[in-house]
Protein backbone atom coordinates (compact mmCIF):
# COMPACT_ATOMS: atom_id res chain seq x y z
CA UNK A 1 0.00 0.00 0.00
CA UNK A 2 2.85 2.34 0.78
CA UNK A 3 4.63 1.35 -2.38
CA UNK A 4 5.37 4.39 -4.45
CA UNK A 5 3.86 6.72 -1.84
CA UNK A 6 4.93 10.32 -2.56
CA UNK A 7 6.18 12.07 0.57
CA UNK A 8 7.31 15.69 0.94
CA UNK A 9 9.63 16.38 3.89
CA UNK A 10 9.56 20.01 5.07
CA UNK A 11 12.26 20.83 7.63
CA UNK A 12 14.98 23.50 7.77
CA UNK A 13 17.53 21.13 9.30
CA UNK A 14 19.53 19.43 6.48
CA UNK A 15 20.66 16.53 8.68
CA UNK A 16 17.13 15.43 9.51
CA UNK A 17 16.08 15.87 5.87
CA UNK A 18 18.90 13.59 4.80
CA UNK A 19 18.05 11.06 7.51
CA UNK A 20 14.34 11.02 6.68
CA UNK A 21 15.11 10.64 2.95
CA UNK A 22 17.26 7.61 3.80
CA UNK A 23 14.67 5.77 5.85
CA UNK A 24 11.68 6.73 3.68
CA UNK A 25 13.42 5.62 0.48
CA UNK A 26 14.39 2.40 2.25
CA UNK A 27 10.63 1.95 2.81
CA UNK A 28 10.11 2.35 -0.96
CA UNK A 29 8.60 5.84 -0.81
CA UNK A 30 9.31 8.66 -3.24
CA UNK A 31 10.78 11.59 -1.33
CA UNK A 32 10.98 15.30 -2.08
CA UNK A 33 12.23 17.82 0.44
CA UNK A 34 11.90 21.51 1.20
CA UNK A 35 13.69 23.76 3.68
CA UNK A 36 11.03 26.48 3.88
CA UNK A 37 7.27 26.96 3.70
CA UNK A 38 7.54 28.79 0.38
CA UNK A 39 9.50 26.03 -1.20
CA UNK A 40 7.14 23.44 0.23
CA UNK A 41 4.05 25.08 -1.25
CA UNK A 42 5.78 25.26 -4.65
CA UNK A 43 6.67 21.58 -4.50
CA UNK A 44 3.16 20.60 -3.37
CA UNK A 45 1.76 22.26 -6.50
CA UNK A 46 4.40 20.67 -8.74
CA UNK A 47 4.85 17.17 -7.27
CA UNK A 48 1.38 16.53 -5.74
CA UNK A 49 2.67 14.48 -2.76
CA UNK A 50 0.23 12.26 -0.86
CA UNK A 51 1.81 12.91 2.55
CA UNK A 52 3.56 16.04 3.85
CA UNK A 53 5.88 15.68 6.85
CA UNK A 54 5.93 19.18 8.33
CA UNK A 55 8.23 20.78 10.92
CA UNK A 56 6.54 23.61 12.82
CA UNK A 57 9.68 25.71 13.30
CA UNK A 58 10.23 26.94 9.75
CA UNK A 59 12.39 29.97 8.98
CA UNK A 60 9.89 31.87 6.81
CA UNK A 61 6.48 31.10 8.28
CA UNK A 62 4.98 29.58 11.40
CA UNK A 63 4.18 25.91 10.88
CA UNK A 64 0.68 26.20 12.37
CA UNK A 65 -0.24 28.70 9.65
CA UNK A 66 1.36 26.59 6.94
CA UNK A 67 -0.99 23.67 7.81
CA UNK A 68 -3.99 25.73 6.71
CA UNK A 69 -2.31 26.79 3.46
CA UNK A 70 -1.36 23.21 2.57
CA UNK A 71 -4.91 22.04 3.33
CA UNK A 72 -6.26 24.71 0.98
CA UNK A 73 -3.82 23.79 -1.79
CA UNK A 74 -3.79 20.01 -1.69
CA UNK A 75 -5.59 16.88 -0.46
CA UNK A 76 -2.31 15.55 0.95
CA UNK A 77 -2.27 14.12 4.48
CA UNK A 78 -0.24 16.27 6.88
CA UNK A 79 1.94 14.72 9.54
CA UNK A 80 3.53 17.21 11.91
CA UNK A 81 7.02 16.26 13.07
CA UNK A 82 8.10 18.76 15.72
CA UNK A 83 10.31 19.30 18.72
CA UNK A 84 7.42 21.19 20.34
CA UNK A 85 5.72 18.76 22.64
CA UNK A 86 3.11 20.78 24.49
CA UNK A 87 -0.46 19.48 24.37
CA UNK A 88 -1.59 22.92 23.27
CA UNK A 89 0.59 22.85 20.14
CA UNK A 90 -0.67 19.38 19.28
CA UNK A 91 -4.33 20.30 19.68
CA UNK A 92 -3.87 23.45 17.60
CA UNK A 93 -2.17 21.53 14.79
CA UNK A 94 -4.77 18.74 14.79
CA UNK A 95 -7.64 21.21 14.87
CA UNK A 96 -6.06 23.14 12.00
CA UNK A 97 -6.27 19.99 9.91
CA UNK A 98 -3.09 18.03 10.58
CA UNK A 99 -3.68 14.26 10.41
CA UNK A 100 -1.12 13.31 13.03
CA UNK A 101 1.57 14.71 15.26
CA UNK A 102 4.88 13.04 16.08
CA UNK A 103 7.43 14.63 18.43
CA UNK A 104 11.18 14.56 17.93
CA UNK A 105 13.06 12.42 18.66
CA UNK A 106 10.92 9.65 17.29
CA UNK A 107 10.97 5.93 16.71
CA UNK A 108 11.55 5.20 13.01
CA UNK A 109 9.13 2.29 12.82
CA UNK A 110 6.44 4.30 14.53
CA UNK A 111 6.94 7.19 12.14
CA UNK A 112 6.61 4.89 9.12
CA UNK A 113 3.45 3.35 10.57
CA UNK A 114 1.96 6.80 11.17
CA UNK A 115 2.79 7.88 7.61
CA UNK A 116 1.03 4.82 6.22
CA UNK A 117 -2.00 5.36 8.48
CA UNK A 118 -2.28 8.97 7.41
CA UNK A 119 -2.03 8.04 3.72
CA UNK A 120 -4.58 5.26 4.08
CA UNK A 121 -6.94 7.58 5.85
CA UNK A 122 -6.70 10.06 2.95
CA UNK A 123 -7.60 7.34 0.51
CA UNK A 124 -10.51 6.09 2.63
CA UNK A 125 -12.02 9.50 3.07
CA UNK A 126 -13.29 9.44 -0.45
CA UNK A 127 -16.01 6.83 0.14
CA UNK A 128 -18.09 5.91 3.20
CA UNK A 129 -18.05 2.27 3.92
CA UNK A 130 -20.69 0.21 5.66
CA UNK A 131 -18.32 -1.65 7.93
CA UNK A 132 -14.87 -1.18 9.42
CA UNK A 133 -12.44 -3.59 10.97
CA UNK A 134 -9.90 -2.87 13.69
CA UNK A 135 -7.94 -5.89 14.80
CA UNK A 136 -10.47 -8.50 15.88
CA UNK A 137 -13.24 -5.94 16.27
CA UNK A 138 -15.72 -5.27 13.50
CA UNK A 139 -17.97 -2.20 13.37
CA UNK A 140 -21.16 -2.25 11.31
CA UNK A 141 -22.03 1.39 10.76
CA UNK A 142 -25.43 0.72 9.22
CA UNK A 143 -26.65 -1.85 11.77
CA UNK A 144 -25.04 0.09 14.66
CA UNK A 145 -23.40 -3.08 15.76
CA UNK A 146 -19.99 -3.97 17.11
CA UNK A 147 -18.75 -7.55 17.03
CA UNK A 148 -15.73 -8.92 18.81
CA UNK A 149 -14.50 -12.23 17.44
CA UNK A 150 -17.84 -12.53 15.74
CA UNK A 151 -19.86 -12.10 18.97
CA UNK A 152 -22.05 -8.96 19.28
CA UNK A 153 -21.12 -6.49 22.03
CA UNK A 154 -23.95 -4.45 23.55
CA UNK A 155 -23.12 -0.73 23.44
CA UNK A 156 -25.25 2.25 24.42
CA UNK A 157 -25.94 4.73 21.58
CA UNK A 158 -23.26 7.17 22.84
CA UNK A 159 -20.71 4.41 23.28
CA UNK A 160 -21.37 3.26 19.76
CA UNK A 161 -21.20 6.78 18.32
CA UNK A 162 -17.85 7.35 20.03
CA UNK A 163 -16.35 4.04 18.98
CA UNK A 164 -17.56 4.50 15.39
CA UNK A 165 -15.96 7.96 15.28
CA UNK A 166 -12.64 6.52 16.46
CA UNK A 167 -12.92 3.54 14.13
CA UNK A 168 -13.47 5.79 11.11
CA UNK A 169 -9.95 7.19 11.69
CA UNK A 170 -7.91 4.24 12.95
CA UNK A 171 -4.45 5.19 14.16
CA UNK A 172 -5.20 8.87 14.06
CA UNK A 173 -5.43 11.14 17.10
CA UNK A 174 -8.83 12.77 17.49
CA UNK A 175 -8.78 15.69 19.91
CA UNK A 176 -11.11 15.80 22.88
CA UNK A 177 -12.91 18.71 21.27
CA UNK A 178 -13.41 16.88 17.97
CA UNK A 179 -14.79 13.78 19.69
CA UNK A 180 -17.10 15.68 22.04
CA UNK A 181 -18.41 17.81 19.17
CA UNK A 182 -19.24 14.91 16.89
CA UNK A 183 -20.69 12.60 19.57
CA UNK A 184 -22.35 14.96 22.09
CA UNK A 185 -22.75 18.07 19.97
CA UNK A 186 -21.07 21.48 20.02
CA UNK A 187 -22.75 22.45 23.34
CA UNK A 188 -20.74 19.78 25.15
CA UNK A 189 -17.32 20.52 23.70
CA UNK A 190 -15.94 21.24 27.18
CA UNK A 191 -17.55 18.27 28.99
CA UNK A 192 -14.46 16.13 29.08
CA UNK A 193 -15.92 14.07 31.91
CA UNK A 194 -18.53 12.56 29.55
CA UNK A 195 -15.76 11.45 27.22
CA UNK A 196 -13.65 9.97 30.04
CA UNK A 197 -16.58 8.08 31.48
CA UNK A 198 -17.73 6.73 28.11
CA UNK A 199 -14.18 5.70 27.14
CA UNK A 200 -13.96 3.83 30.40
CA UNK A 201 -17.25 2.03 29.67
CA UNK A 202 -16.09 1.15 26.15
CA UNK A 203 -12.82 -0.23 27.46
CA UNK A 204 -14.68 -2.43 29.93
CA UNK A 205 -16.63 -3.93 27.04
CA UNK A 206 -13.95 -4.10 24.35
CA UNK A 207 -10.47 -4.24 25.90
CA UNK A 208 -8.86 -7.49 26.93
CA UNK A 209 -7.63 -5.84 30.15
CA UNK A 210 -9.54 -2.59 30.83
CA UNK A 211 -6.93 -1.26 33.26
CA UNK A 212 -4.11 -1.78 30.72
CA UNK A 213 -5.83 -0.44 27.59
CA UNK A 214 -4.28 -1.16 24.22
CA UNK A 215 -7.23 -0.47 21.90
CA UNK A 216 -8.26 3.06 22.81
CA UNK A 217 -5.01 4.92 23.46
CA UNK A 218 -4.73 8.19 25.40
CA UNK A 219 -2.65 11.17 24.24
CA UNK A 220 -2.25 13.21 27.45
CA UNK A 221 -3.97 16.57 27.11
CA UNK A 222 -4.70 16.00 23.39
CA UNK A 223 -7.19 13.25 22.69
CA UNK A 224 -7.68 9.57 21.89
CA UNK A 225 -6.47 7.33 19.13
CA UNK A 226 -7.78 3.93 18.12
CA UNK A 227 -4.72 1.76 17.89
CA UNK A 228 -4.38 0.42 14.36
CA UNK A 229 -2.79 -2.79 15.55
CA UNK A 230 -3.87 -3.63 19.06
Amino acid sequence: MSFGLKVLVVDDDPAIRRFLRTILEAAAMKVADAASAGEALRLIAAERPEVVILDLGLPDEDGQAVIGRIKAASPAAILVLSARESAGEKVTALNAGADDYVTKPFDTDELLARIRTAARHRLQEQGVRASLRVGDIEVDLLAHEVRRDGAAVRLTPKEFALFAELAKHPGRVLTHGQLLRSVWGPAHEQDLEYLRVTVRALRRKLEVSPSRPTLIVNEPGVGYRLSASP
Binding site: D11, R18, F19, I23, A83, K104
Partner: peptide, 9 residues
Protein backbone atom coordinates in the same frame (compact mmCIF):
# COMPACT_ATOMS: atom_id res chain seq x y z
CA UNK B 1 15.87 17.89 19.75
CA UNK B 2 16.13 17.97 15.97
CA UNK B 3 19.76 16.78 15.78
CA UNK B 4 18.96 14.29 18.53
CA UNK B 5 16.15 12.89 16.38
CA UNK B 6 18.67 12.32 13.59
CA UNK B 7 21.10 10.66 16.02
CA UNK B 8 18.58 8.25 17.57
CA UNK B 9 16.95 7.49 14.23
Amino acid sequence: RTPLATVTG
